[in-house]
Simulated scan of single mutants.
Amino acid sequence: MRSLLAAAVLALAAPAWAQTPQEEAGAAIDAMHQAASRADAEAYWETFTPDARFIGTAATERWDIPAFQAYANPIFAEGRGWTYHPRDRHLTLAPGECRCVVWFDELLDHDRYGVVRGSGVAVRTERGWRVAQYVMSFPVPNEIAGEVVERIREAGQAH
């Protein structure tokens, strides 16, 4: 009974501007994209959990944070980053009382690559929402999927 009462009091005391968990997680994902665009390595790595995974578009790109830092930090050090403009994002809050896990997918616009898809998992930590896994992919229209797969095979990139 006491925890129910405490939860009710906290809910009543929450400010009207309080965000939903999905909005908070979305803001953390936005912060990740913005930090990458600014080539702000410190802010970028802060958006991930320590045990996060970043899965890139190539079959070999499955990085833990130290491996991803080894790849990205030299790029950031040159003042270069990568800019993706998120749109059409869908966030799903995991069921249960913790309200601490969100999975998501989003379409992103990129100047060079066009439309790209990002998906992943964000978790609420003691330091706020962090990305635990991010997967980037190229959405391929079904009409040309066979041709794309053949080109990947020719390039020796299919694993």
Rank of each mutant, 00 (worst) to 15 (best):
R2K: 14
L5P: 06
A7I: 07
V9N: 06
L10T: 08
L12T: 06
L12S: 01
P15V: 13
W17C: 14
W17Q: 15
W17S: 15
P21N: 06
E23L: 04
E24H: 07
E24D: 15
E24L: 09
G26W: 00
A28S: 03
I29T: 02
D30Q: 06
H33L: 13
H33M: 15
Q34S: 09
A35Y: 09
A35S: 12
R38M: 10
W45T: 00
E46D: 11
E46S: 09
F48H: 12
F48I: 13
P50G: 08
A52M: 03
R53K: 07
R53H: 03
R53C: 03
G56R: 05
A58K: 05
A58F: 15
A59S: 09
T60V: 11
T60F: 12
E61C: 10
R62G: 08
R62H: 11
P66I: 12
P66R: 01
P66L: 08
A67W: 05
Q69K: 14
Y71K: 14
Y71R: 15
A72C: 04
A72L: 03
P74A: 04
A77P: 08
G79T: 15
G79K: 08
H85S: 08
H85P: 06
R87N: 08
R87I: 14
R89C: 02
R89P: 12
H90P: 02
H90L: 14
L91V: 00
L91N: 04
L93W: 02
P95Q: 14
P95K: 12
E97V: 11
E97C: 06
R99E: 13
R99T: 01
C100T: 13
W103F: 10
W103Y: 06
D105T: 10
D105Y: 07
D105P: 08
L107Y: 13
L108V: 11
L108C: 15
L108Q: 10
D109R: 07
D109N: 07
H110N: 14
R112F: 12
R112P: 05
V115A: 11
V116R: 05
V116K: 01
R117L: 03
G118E: 01
G118A: 09
G118V: 00
V121K: 09
V123K: 05
E126D: 12
R127I: 11
G128T: 09
W129G: 00
W129N: 00
R130F: 10
A132E: 00
V135F: 02
V135D: 04
M136C: 07
M136G: 03
M136F: 06
F138G: 13
F138M: 13
P139V: 08
P139Y: 07
V140M: 12
N142A: 02
G146D: 10
G146Q: 02
E147R: 05
V148I: 13
E150V: 03
I152V: 15
I152G: 01
R153T: 12
R153Q: 14
A155T: 04
A155P: 02
Q157H: 05
H159F: 14
